[in-house]
């Protein structure tokens, strides 16, 4: 799998996140006013509406919160795949992201809630942005 849709720009909320991905860094934000962890990226803190946010780099370690294995998707880039997963991963820094769990033999059997996973940056056939995905560890 290496033909995922690319993010599209200009989109000022997510630009810095995707620049981070290009550099091999999974970025999230924290509010300097109230300490809230902010994800998906944006230019304000949803807890206090401050615009004073700091970018941070995640270690990329997390836990599967939930997932599904898609057996049928008619869209190009996915239609020709076998079963593949989507998952919410809870990162240790306290943010949740939608992603995919890769590197398992059979996604219908080898993924489970509570599983520990680590980020990796999947190069794509086309487009300049790799895509952050997660692989089980341990």
């Amino acid at each position: 799998m290496a033909n995922r849709p690319q993010p599209q720009f200009p989109e000022p909320n997510t630009e810095a996140y995707w620049e981070g991905v290009k550099e091999g860094e999974l970025r999230y934000q924290q509010c300097n006013s109230c300490g809230e962890i902010v994800f998906y990226p944006r230019q304000h803190c949803p807890a206090c509406l401050s615009d004073d946010l700091a970018w941070k780099a995640s270690k990329g370690d997390g836990t599967v919160y939930t997932f599904s294995v898609i057996r049928q998707n008619r869209m190009p880039g996915f239609a020709e795949l076998g079963a593949y997963s989507v998952a919410y991963v809870d990162l240790d820094e306290g943010f949740r992201m939608l992603s995919s769990i890769v590197g398992v033999e059979d996604p219908t059997k080898d993924i489970h809630i509570g599983q520990r996973v680590a980020v990796e940056f999947e190069e794509q056939d086309e487009g300049e942005y790799p895509i952050p995905v997660f692989r089980p560890v341990g």
Binding site: R4, P5, Q6, P7, Q8, F9, P10, E11, N13, T14, Y17, W18, Y40, P41, R42, T66, F67, S68, V69, I70, Q72, N73, R74, M75, G77, F78, L81, Y84, V86, A87, Y88, M97, L98, S99, S100, I131
Partner: peptide, 30 residues
């Protein structure tokens, strides 16, 4: 069973489009 979202730059789609989530998989996660 189609891919979620339309074309064009969008805050949330930029974070979700790469993963090929479908409407059914979304409810399936619940």
């Amino acid at each position: 069973t189609g891919r979620l979202g339309g074309g064009g730059a969008n805050w949330r789609m930029n974070m979700e489009m790469p993963y090929g989530s479908t409407l059914i998989s979304n409810y399936a996660m619940v």
